[in-house]
């Protein structure tokens, strides 16, 4: 390495030094501990006992683990694109220079600002199959449909029917995508006006400008929100826990891997096994994120590079 390489390395490491310290103390050390625990029988309260690869062998045969993994993948596959698309659309709408947009922005962000305990109770009602507001809104559409086709389909029992619990959860996830909207909004400010001017001179319409100017220019932010949605959806825990009142939902349809890890660790006194599951989940997410990272590298455009 040349001298300037060394200087850059030194400067780089100096700048990231707070992170290095945090990483070693708050990530690496706990991660290594839990790696060690995954080879033990450990109840948290008494000392761990080495059991070799027992926990990993158990995991292969554990139907609940695989069911939780299926639920998690299913949720991730639909919630990531849904929340990305919706939050991007909202951000674009909220970015138009219109009177009252500050108020609109604040309203759209409200669900992300309220204490979770309010939202949990409210959602249980909104999603109720019998008296919920969502089905009250859907009823006219179903009625019209039934009249035309002579059928008798009803809106779903969102939280009681195992087939509809996950769509219901995806709906609520989109609802609280306020953080992603804010990040998109901040990203939209970085798009130089000159590019829009140039595009307009070329006669570009709204969608052409969106596709050829906005999206490429905010691709670093799309990448950020995408990766965060990926990581977040694989650790989904609080929302389903609150909506189901702490249960796993009908037919265990809302039992996610993170929920299962929590139960194993703190309800079943099985921290060793929980660590094994946690590490396997970690590896799954890591591989997927790396994949997403390398694929998106091609489409992400950084002005500063």
């Amino acid at each position: 390495m040349s001298r300037s390489d060394w200087i850059r390395l030194r400067n780089g490491l100096l700048f990231i030094s707070p992170w290095i310290l945090g990483f070693v103390v708050l990530n690496l050390y706990p991660l290594l501990s839990s790696f060690a625990y995954s080879f033990t029988d450990y109840s948290v309260l008494s000392d761990p006992v080495y059991v070799g690869t027992d926990n990993y062998e158990r995991l292969l045969k554990d139907g609940l683990f695989w069911q939780s993994l299926y639920n998690t993948f299913f949720f991730a596959a639909f919630s990531i694109p849904a929340s990305l698309a919706v939050s991007l659309i909202f951000a674009v709408l909220l970015n138009f220079e219109l009177p009252g947009r500050s108020i609109f922005r604040t309203i759209y962000f409200l669900p992300s600002l309220l204490p979770l305990v309010c939202l949990g109770v409210l959602w249980q009602w909104l999603l109720n199959g019998d008296i919920g507001l969502i089905n009250a809104a859907l009823d006219p559409f179903f009625d019209t449909f039934n009249r035309i086709f002579g059928t008798s389909v009803r809106p779903p029992n969102w939280l009681a029917d195992p087939a509809f619990t996950k769509p219901a959860l995806i709906l609520t996830t989109v609802w609280t995508a306020g953080n992603a909207v804010v990040i998109f909004l901040a990203g939209l400010q970085d798009v130089p006006r000159s590019l829009y001017e140039a595009a307009e001179i070329d006669g570009a319409n709204f969608f052409q400008k969106l596709l050829h100017v906005t999206l490429p220019m905010i691709s670093p932010v799309i990448y950020f929100n995408g990766i965060m949605a990926l990581i977040g959806s694989f650790q989904v825990f609080a929302l389903p826990f609150i909506i189901t009142g702490g249960s796993d939902g009908p037919g265990r349809s809302l039992m996610f891997t993170a929920t299962y890890i929590y139960r194993r660790a703190f309800e079943y006194w099985d921290m060793g096994y929980a660590c094994a599951i946690g590490l396997v989940l970690f590896l799954f997410v890591l591989v997927l994120t790396l994949l997403a990272h390398f694929i998106s590298q091609r489409y992400t455009y950084y002005q500063g590079e």
């Binding site: 700048f15 839990s34 891997t257 993170a258 703190f266 994120t289």
Partner: peptide
């Protein structure tokens, strides 16, 4: 340090930054 200085190994270390967010919290809480 991760965005504006090009140092050897930077992008690999950055992937570690991402990886730290993927550790399920219950297993590192204790």
């Amino acid at each position: 340090g991760f965005a504006r200085i090009r140092w050897r190994g930077r992008d690999t270390v950055f992937l570690i930054v991402l990886a730290t967010m993927m550790i399920p919290f219950p297993v590192i809480m204790v």
